[in-house]
């Protein structure tokens, strides 16, 4: 079977004379080496980078472009097109308020407003202590439990503004506990 993926440069990039970059750290190279020469891998690479760093650092994007042979414009274009990619480091807890139809009908707007007031930040912002990042998400597919709030990998169903305040306090305490330990 012929591969549909045309070969890109499968060799490592030579940084000699590159004014911007020195060779990437080894942990990054491990990720990039896996996808060398695969034209369709860009999104997967960015997803892995984000898993690794928690966000997409500028240098990470530059290294991905250099090493895999994509124009930096394409890398940046993809990184900014999709909602899940983040170019800024997020807080310890990413609070995602679902604004899907079922959640909307069940008044998720009030929950979002409450969390905004409590944290004193707007959408896509992070609290100054780096604890919480607030985002909205189109739909988590847990509509029967609407309204839904997702924190990192945990889903909180049947939320109310009051419950969301309790949730934030709980998370704060949890973080404080971990610091002590």
């Amino acid at each position: 079977m012929t591969s549909p993926v045309k070969e890109l440069s499968s060799r490592r990039y030579i940084y000699q004379g590159d004014p911007l970059l020195t060779p990437p750290p080894a942990d990054l190279m491990v990720i990039l080496d896996k996808y060398r020469g695969q034209r369709d891998a860009l999104m997967t690479v960015l997803e892995e980078l984000q898993d690794h760093y928690g966000y997409l650092p500028q240098q990470g994007l530059q290294y991905a472009a250099r090493e895999l042979g994509f124009p930096l414009s394409q890398v940046y274009g993809v990184a900014t097109f999709y909602n899940l990619f983040q170019l800024k480091p997020p807080g310890r807890y990413i609070v995602r308020v679902c604004k899907g139809t079922a959640c909307h009908v069940n008044r998720s707007g009030e929950i979002l407003a409450m969390i905004k007031t409590k944290l004193g930040i707007g959408e896509d912002e992070t609290t100054p202590d780096g604890m919480f990042t607030l985002q909205t998400v189109a739909c988590m597919g847990a509509c029967s439990l609407a309204p839904v709030v997702v924190v990192n990998d945990r889903t909180y169903g049947r939320m109310t503004p009051e419950k969301s305040t309790a949730m934030l306090t709980e998370l704060h305490d949890e973080a404080a506990m971990e610091v002590k330990v």
Binding site: K99, G100, T101, A102, A138, C143
Partner: peptide
């Protein structure tokens, strides 16, 4: 890519 808000059949 079940994007319609309010749909979770595929999931």
């Amino acid at each position: 890519d079940e994007g319609d808000p309010g749909a979770f059949m595929d999931r």
